[in-house]
């Protein structure tokens, strides 16, 4: 069965970043404090001795027949220096997202991808 009794349902994909938390992140804070406020990072990255934590919140509306419309997105990046203190904080929104078309070609991989005939035979 599908989503809910109503036609459109609102969902949050990724992290729910409470608005109050955004202001509380200031340079000089420790990783423990950031974890306390925002929770453990959704994705991380390191730049040499600097590390970066990312929290991505995407608000979407989903129709019952599976169409997802992105309402807004907040990408919060927190950068830490060598001794794990907050150095910088950056916020990107939906319009910062670049519009690209995703490459369809893929790296070939091993493994018998059953052809039409033996898919039929193997299923009995």
């Amino acid at each position: 069965c599908t989503s809910s009794t109503s036609l459109i349902s609102k969902r949050t994909q990724g992290y729910e970043i409470p608005d109050s938390a955004l202001q509380q992140i200031r340079p000089g804070q420790s990783q423990q404090l950031v974890t306390l406020v925002l929770g453990s990072p959704q994705s991380t990255n390191t730049f040499g001795d600097r590390t970066a934590w990312y929290y991505v919140e995407t608000k979407v509306n989903q129709t019952s027949f599976g169409l997802t419309m992105v309402q807004e997105r907040t990408v919060l990046a927190v950068y830490f220096d060598r001794n794990k203190k907050v150095v910088d904080r950056a916020i990107y929104t939906l319009d910062d997202g670049k519009v690209i078309n995703i490459e369809t070609r893929r790296t070939p991989s091993f493994g018998e991808d059953a052809t039409f005939i033996d898919a039929i035979l193997s299923s009995f």
Binding site: S3, S4, T5, S6, S9, K10, R11, T12, E16, K59
Partner: peptide, 11 residues
Amino acid sequence: AYEATAQGYSF
């Protein structure tokens, strides 16, 4: 619970 999440309250 499912209905409440559909109103955007994920937790």
